[in-house]
Design a protein around this nucleic acid. Structure first.
Lengths: 144, 144
DNA sequence: GTTGCTGGGTCTGTCAACTAGACTTAGCAT
DNA sequence: ATGCTAAGTCTAGTTGACAGACCCAGCAAC
């Protein structure tokens, strides 16, 4: 994909994640959709593109190929998130929240995320080391 | 761009943000880079593509065109984030943090974000309504 | 033992998107 | 009139996405 080789983690992240379908593949992975045909159905990506994206994500350690075997079937592979992949959850959640806020249809968000331990709904927040919740991009100062 | 018309805010967000260069244009906007040639230099996007992306972002209310005039120059336009655009900060920050963690070069992150009021560094967190900080995607349960 | 089925791909031709590089335009200054 | 500049637009060539057909391994039924 080749963005300008600029010293910026956003550009570097996009290098791996910025191609079409990639984020939807990760959405599928977070929803425990792990097998090729299921991912294809979930995302709608053309098979060939999906094949390339999966290979790319595996190559960069975001997904891993795990063998499995259904009874009476030969061994096949499924795709699971690595730690590196799991850590992308905030990015997906950011897109989800923003879409819920600005692009929702009539009936509101189709899914609500809750904390497994206490059941309360979850949202993304910017938090400073002193424990303040930062409301807006305007309250942030970049240093160096 | 046309992802499958699926009831999912992530897909809908990507419909607006998922094309190449779009996120880098927003990065520029958050860095107060607002004029066409400056954005072009900052992102490296070809001028024609940049033109299309800016128009698309303005059309969807993420950027707005504001007239300005340098002394001795004719009036021109610059591009500024709307509220809708400012609310995308968590998405960019998510990409930044992930890139800092997994794709950093030798010398570590090139920029640190601090809370304007207290000066402490900021990070993205998943927070539940009870005030717990949720560590991992595995601690989240989707409902409905 | 070959025919069919299924999951997970690959191949092909077409069409849309991206790219670099040159050209255009409006208004101010000389 | 001529040049300068920011912000585009035009052109022609290359890359990437797409739909649809095809392939392949192994199990199972005939």
């Amino acid at each position: 994909m080749r963005y300008r080789p600029v010293d910026c983690s956003i550009a570097r992240s996009l290098e791996l994640l910025g191609e079409r379908w990639t984020i939807l593949v990760l959405r599928a992975a977070f929803n425990a959709v792990r097998r090729f045909d299921d991912i294809q159905a979930d995302t709608g990506a053309p098979r060939q593109v999906l094949s390339a994206r999966l290979a790319h994500l595996v190559e960069h350690g975001i997904l891993k190929r795990i063998p499995y075997q259904e009874p009476g079937q030969r061994q096949r592979y499924e795709y699971r998130l690595t730690h590196k992949g799991l850590d992308l959850y905030p990015v997906l959640l950011g897109l989800l929240e923003w879409g819920d806020k600005y692009l929702a249809d009539d009936e509101g968000p189709s899914v609500v995320l809750t904390h497994k331990e206490c059941g309360s709904p979850i949202h993304m927040a910017m938090v400073c080391a002193d424990g303040h919740e930062v409301e807006s991009a305007r309250d942030v100062r970049p240093v160096r």
